[in-house]
Write a protein that binds this DNA or RNA. Sequence first.
DNA 1: CTATTATTTAGACAGATGTCTAATTAGACG
DNA 2: CGTCTAATTAGACATCTGTCTAAATAATAG
Lengths: 98, 98
Amino acid sequence: MANNSIFKALADPTRREVLKLLRSREMTAGELAERFEMTKPSMSHHFALLKEADLISSRRDGQTIWYGLNTTVLQDLVSWAMDLADPNLGNGKKGRRR
Amino acid sequence: MANNSIFKALADPTRREVLKLLRSREMTAGELAERFEMTKPSMSHHFALLKEADLISSRRDGQTIWYGLNTTVLQDLVSWAMDLADPNLGNGKKGRRR
DNA sequence: CTATTATTTAGACAGATGTCTAATTAGACG
DNA sequence: CGTCTAATTAGACATCTGTCTAAATAATAG
């Protein structure tokens, strides 16, 4: 968990914006793409990276592909950051049982 | 908060490892550098990026420079990720008072 | 099968990033 | 000052990344 592809995926503003849009609901590739001033192939590339990091899920419905937010990885990120900020409070790993 | 430089800084494994080392205590630039198979100038570059993202602080003591972890930014990151994972629970922004 | 729509894949390319060596700055100490 | 140690800055260079256009794949509808 909290592997490199996640941080790489989050390192781009466009991709973080995509995640933000997917917060409320699933959206199609085209629907997402038209919100950015960028070509569809470029957006498609961003989707691929987000998907590789498992930050989003995808499913095909006919011609369109729906993307959705995967919150599990974000929760891992929260754990990672919290553990870094305060190793004592974070229930990271086993042991260290006070 | 949660600006681009933070995500960029976290996108490199070496830099995340540096943060991990600084969890327990402050360390000097040289002390940190010798834990990695990389030249000091390269490490110095990583320190600079971490510092620009305000993920670490630095202070000079004689010839040596001590680096320390800044947890504030990490807490911002936690908020950011939590809000993304569940906009209702996150106390993001004002309003939405149920 | 052909045409249309939705989306991705392939390939090119400029610019960003990580690393190195060499040079520089900064402080300590004789 | 001259020298040593700690660390950074400068510049070069290969690789990675984000973007584009053109082409390909996939599904739908005549």
